[in-house]
């Protein structure tokens, strides 16, 4: 029973074809890289050498200046990849090929996770290296304390955000709704709960997960436990989406 629910290589390949052939989905995946690396590099080139910590008081976090924009693209990727399935009966067609709903859902999640992890890792590395190349005397080098953790962690963070969005899209069956709520939430909430690092604010999925890219973690969470908190949010969203897909009539 359990093996019937696990993704198989053919089903994963099939999901990759779906992602590859949908412009909006592939576009948002590429935008994760373009936005994170592009905005970081452009900002670093413009003001990187003007003063110490020009891209943020935490110089390590400043090295991932574009991550807020990249995570919006990750939200779009997860949401569009999953939501395509809920438009105009597409899920019914998919289920006639892969009738085990858990297998279909897990295969989609694994495809989204795998692709965003690959793109995320590449994005993290390029963002750090290319961005720091414009920082002159204030540049950090790969290998400085926390840098490798931050580079790896940034890719994991983007993956978790994409999956969080994917799970929500399956839950509410609309990519537009998820993007419309989650992107403003991720962009605005940091300003509202702002610099209050202790209290509930630090447990928000973005706040907690971004700790992995910071040199100094204030509040009660560390870099890895912060990422763990985001992983729990993601797991909850994926579980919610899974229950919805399993229970509802297609």
């Amino acid at each position: 029973m359990i093996t019937a629910a696990l993704p198989t290589a053919p089903v994963l390949r099939s999901e990759w074809i779906k992602i590859r052939s949908a412009r909006a989905v592939l576009g948002s995946l590429l935008a994760v890289f373009a936005a994170t690396a592009g905005i970081t590099v452009l900002t670093a080139a413009a003001i990187g050498t003007s003063e110490p910590g020009a891209l943020g008081e935490d110089r390590l976090f400043g090295a991932f200046f574009g991550i807020n924009f990249g995570q919006s693209a990750a939200v779009a990727f997860g949401a569009t990849a999953f939501a395509a399935e809920f438009r105009g009966g597409a899920l019914r067609v998919s289920l006639t090929a892969v009738p085990n709903r858990t297998r279909l859902y897990l295969s989609k999640a694994v495809a989204v996770a795998g692709l965003s992890f690959l793109v995320g890792q590449f994005t993290g590395l390029v963002t750090f290296v290319a961005g720091q190349a414009f920082m002159g005397e204030y540049a950090l080098a790969l290998g400085d304390p926390g840098t490798l953790r931050a580079v790896f962690g940034s890719g994991v963070y983007l993956t978790l955000i994409a999956l969080l969005s994917a799970g929500l899209a399956a839950l509410v069956r609309s990519g537009t709704l998820v993007m419309g709520l989650l992107i403003p939430f991720l962009l605005i909430v940091p300003f509202v709960v702002g610099q209050v690092m202790d209290g509930a604010g630090q447990f928000m999925p973005d706040r907690a997960g971004q700790l992995v890219m910071r040199a100094h973690a204030e509040g009660s969470l560390g870099p890895w436990s912060g990422l763990g908190v985001t992983a729990l949010w993601t797991l909850a969203a994926l579980a919610g989406g899974w229950l919805a897909v399993r229970r509802r009539d297609a």
């Binding site: 053919p10 099939s14 052939s21 438009r87």
Partner: peptide
């Protein structure tokens, strides 16, 4: 709707699975 994709890709995705 097989999305805004061409006719071949959605069929290919089904076939491959």
């Amino acid at each position: 709707a097989h999305g805004g994709r061409g006719a071949r890709d959605p069929l290919l995705a089904l076939a491959v699975s």
